[in-house]
Nucleic acid binder design. Structure first.
Length: 808
RNA sequence: GCUCGGAUGGUGGAAUGGUAGACACGCAAGACUUAAAAUCUUGUGGCCAUUAUAGGCUGUGCGGGUUCAAGUCCCGCUCCGAGUACCA
């Protein structure tokens, strides 16, 4: 039994006193920047799942230190946002206070796990010295026209009483509180992320060290589709309907046109539409149906024909009916579509329901339009005048060119990605640094007045009126225009929670800079982040936003590289012992403090890394923790088995070098479970050797190496064992042991002998045995002989591994 | 529906196309103990055979295929998970 409490505390204090993990920038060393997604410090504190990713990066960072890198491994807090604010409302305290308490609690919990963070670089997004630069970047965006004011209907959470971005929703509900989202027109600030859509998409190809699944999620989220925008004249000849389609090639099969029910053209055509009352009733009826119902899976499509107006197909001048229908969304494309029921499932369904004409215009070799369902794949055009006979892709090219020539339409790329609704009607966020002047319009707060501090307020409650609580502080709101000194009012919306995390990784590089967002030389040295680790839930949120800001900062010349994060890995969740997500609600939360007290931080670290593949979710099992603890004690027991005089056994020595190689490679690949397994195998081997031969199996030199390769996983006990050898400096300042490829090569190997692919014998032979020698030894083996009953037709020899004899 | 993952003992999992189940948990038997815990030893996919040893068959969700050899590659399914959802 070892006293982990004493040992762990001792080394944590010593490391702190020695400033061991202070970031160094030594000229003769390469840099490595490894980053965790910084946490939101909630009042509940950590459960054992939270530190999993931090343990992994800690192991990685320690390896890199020992391999001679200048390592930047910082930590901070993303502390603006709803949880702190809701806590503040409930307890009537300033969120600042709640945040400070949570941060402290968080740091205490992290500290006992023995992480090598450089706390001198701690970042907090709610610190005015930090958000000064969040505001600065926002102003730059506004200056470049990337931040604009809009009054479009947006997602509104009736319970949080704020507008939200698409990224804040989960299945049509508020990601924070689960309330159903309403569409509400609201004055808001929006960031033009769609201007960067193509770069965000294309540059994913520059990230080979991101997981393919994450890149796919981002590709889907951005949702680029190439097509054409086409104008259909309306029979009154004055107005026209613009539709977006990716299938111009099917336009001769267009039998009607559909508008979204909220389409602005309706109002314009009011007098032309004979059944306008019916149309209005339909639209009113729809607005009663909740968004969720409207979008729900099996809801039947419905619509109303606009009587008295028709649309004219620009390709053949054919007049077709116009409908409004709930299956067309205003928010995508132009809010209007040309319906081709023969070649689009949704149009088909609608056409069947209302008995509309269905005209197939694409022919296929294998599947054919049979009247029973739409066929959506490409084929060869038919019944399409002079385009008949062309392939779908040829036709799309020719037809859109023709449209452009005739000015009837143009090629168009549409994105699923929407501009980023960037204002919140809540208190606890960065104030948007803009001023509304009666004469000059919108004016930015001058740079020298930044940070524009969040003012103290009486009530943190959201107002629900579309104004933030800041609007109630009249002496803050009423100000003078920086340009004309006339009467002006401050913008009272605040920024969303995501704002601060868009660039925090840059602040770590230069945390105290009050003159610029990040110093150029420092940025050039440390940037980009070499390795970024965090939850997969950020794949289409934070990771898209941060890439967008980074590209913007690149365009400004603030950063020197276009992508912020070179390598990315996601951490798999740790589930409760009952298989459910750890949560107060289920009563299955395990607090790391309790585990550390009973088993030690080192055991917790080893256990979490040994549970299974890093990216995969795993179920907590306290019994498994006992195994980790036992393993640490086994390693400690090795400290009795080394001796200065010992000459190393060949096999043990070879295994040691294999283990060094495997542990190093596995850490670099985030395969911690197999790295630990390799250490276990080695330990078991050494103990078995001692029992069998009653000889000390380890030289001092090799014992030293074992401690070193164990150190990243269990830093406290390793440091203790290291110091027990009389070493002067920390083990983490020592050089990672080199393995010797020559020693790894076995002289004697186990040759597998198969007959017809079935294992029949294992032979101990020289590693470089020839095929002929292997064969003659194999056929001499009783159990092999037994199976060689027919003619030998083939011999497969894999040197150093296997011999397969094929008989007939 | 679409996109991306995954399925291996009682459990977590391991396996550059080359001995499936490493390593660990659990379980069983034994040692130590007055006893228990801890620790140590041995065994542990299933079936068959054997006093014992040596051994045999079978086995990685299901059905096919490629190969001397398939958990791994190809084709077709089933189930589970994640993301997205009337995106034209």
């Amino acid at each position: 039994m070892y006293k982990h409490q004493t040992i762990e505390k001792k080394w944590q204090q010593k490391w702190k006193a020695d400033n061991l993990y202070k970031t160094k920038q030594e000229a003769n060393k390469p840099k490595y920047y490894i980053l965790d997604m910084f946490p939101y410090p909630s009042g509940a504190g950590l459960h054992v799942g939270h530190p999993k990713g931090y343990i992994a990066t800690d192991i990685y960072a320690r390896l890199k230190m020992m391999q001679g890198f200048n390592v930047l491994h910082p930590m901070g807090f993303d502390a603006f946002g709803l949880p702190a604010e809701n806590y503040a409302i409930k307890n009537k305290v300033n969120p600042k206070i709640a945040v400070a308490e949570s941060v402290q609690r968080f740091k205490d919990q992290l500290e006992v796990l023995g992480f090598c963070y450089d706390w001198e670089r701690e970042v907090n997004t709610t610190d005015p010295n930090y958000y000064k630069w969040t505001q600065w970047a926002f102003i730059k965006m506004w200056e470049k026209g990337l931040a604009y004011e809009s009054n479009e209907p947006i997602n509104w959470c009736p319970s949080c009483k704020t507008g939200l971005a698409n990224e804040d929703l989960e299945g049509g509900r508020c990601e924070r509180c689960g309330s159903e989202i309403e569409k509400k027109p609201l004055r808001q600030w929006v960031l033009k992320i769609t201007d960067y859509a193509d770069r965000l998409l294309d540059d994913l190809n520059k990230l080979p060290d991101w997981e393919e699944s994450t890149k796919d999620m981002q590709r889907n989220w951005i949702g680029r589709s190439e097509g054409a925008q086409i104008n259909f004249k309306i029979s009154n000849k004055k107005d026209e309907i613009s539709v977006f389609t990716t299938r111009v090639d099917t336009i001769f099969g267009c039998t009607y046109v559909v508008l979204a029910p909220e389409h602005p053209l309706l109002e314009k055509l009011k007098n032309k539409i004979e059944n306008f009352n019916e149309v209005e009733d339909y639209v009113k009826g729809l607005s009663k149906v909740s968004e969720e119902e409207r979008v729900s899976l099996h809801r039947e499509k419905s619509g109303v024909k606009l009587k008295g107006v028709k649309a004219i197909n620009p390709f053949n001048q054919e007049e077709v009916e116009i409908f409004i229908a709930d299956y067309v969304l205003l928010s995508y494309g132009t809010g209007a579509v040309m319906a081709v029921p023969a070649h689009d499932e949704r149009d088909y369904e609608f056409a069947k329901k209302y008995g509309l004409r269905i005209k197939p215009v694409i022919s296929y070799r294998d599947k054919i339009y049979d009247g029973k369902q739409a066929v959506e794949s490409d084929g060869v055009l038919m019944d399409s005048e002079n385009y008949s006979g062309l392939s779908s892709s040829e036709a799309r090219e020719k037809m859109s060119t023709w449209l452009e020539e005739k000015k009837l339409g143009f090629k168009k790329i549409n994105y699923r990605l929407k501009d980023w609704v960037f204002s919140r009607q809540r208190y606890w966020g960065e104030p948007i640094p803009l001023i509304h002047c009666e004469k000059c319009g919108v004016v930015a707060v001058p740079e020298e007045e930044l940070p524009l501090k969040l003012p103290e307020v009486e009530s943190y409650e959201p107002t629900g009126t579309g104004e933030s609580p800041l609007a109630a502080i009249s002496d803050w709101v009423n100000t003078t225009c920086p340009r004309c000194q006339g009467k002006a009012k401050r913008e009272t919306n605040t920024m969303p929670q995501w704002a601060g995390s868009c660039w925090y990784y840059l602040r770590y590089i230069d945390p105290d800079n009050n003159n610029f967002l990040v110093d150029k030389a420092l940025e050039k040295y440390w940037s980009p982040v070499d390795f970024y680790v965090g939850g997969a839930e950020h794949a289409t949120r934070h990771l898209i936003y941060a890439r967008f800001w980074h590209k913007f900062l690149f365009d400004l010349g603030v950063v020197n590289y276009e992508e912020p994060f070179i390598k990315l890995k996601h951490v798999g969740l740790i589930m409760g012992e009952d298989g459910r997500k750890m949560s107060k609600r289920w009563g299955n939360v395990i607090n790391p403090d309790d585990i550390v007290a009973e088993y030690g931080a080192d055991a917790l670290r080893v256990y979490e890394m040994f549970m299974g593949p890093f990216e995969q979710a795993g179920t907590w099992n306290t019994k498994g923790l006992g195994g980790a603890r036992k393993f640490i004690e086994k390693i400690i027991s090795l400290s009795r088995l080394y001796h200065d005089e010992v000459k190393d056994d060949d096999k043990i020595l070879s295994l040691l070098h294999k283990t060094i190689k495997k542990v190093e490679a596995d850490i670099l690949e985030f395969r911690f479970n197999t790295a630990i397994s390799a250490l276990m195998i080695f330990t078991n081997e050494v103990l078995a050797y001692y029992k069998k031969h009653k000889l000390l199996p380890l030289s001092l030199d090799n014992w030293t190496k074992i401690i070193q390769i164990f150190a990243p996983f269990a830093p406290h006990i390793s440091e203790e064992l290291w110091q027990n050898l009389g070493k002067k400096g920390s083990i983490f300042l020592s050089a990672w042991p080199q393995y010797d490829e020559k020693l790894i090569k076995d002289k004697v190997i186990n040759l597998v002998v198969q007959v017809n692919g079935k294992l029949r014998a294992n032979l101990e032979v020289a590693a470089d045995i020839s095929a002929d020698d292997a064969f003659s030894q194999a056929v001499a083996h009783e159990n092999v002989k037994k199976w060689l009953t027919g003619e030998i037709v083939k011999k497969i020899f894999v040197p150093g591994k296997l011999l397969n004899i094929v008989v007939k």
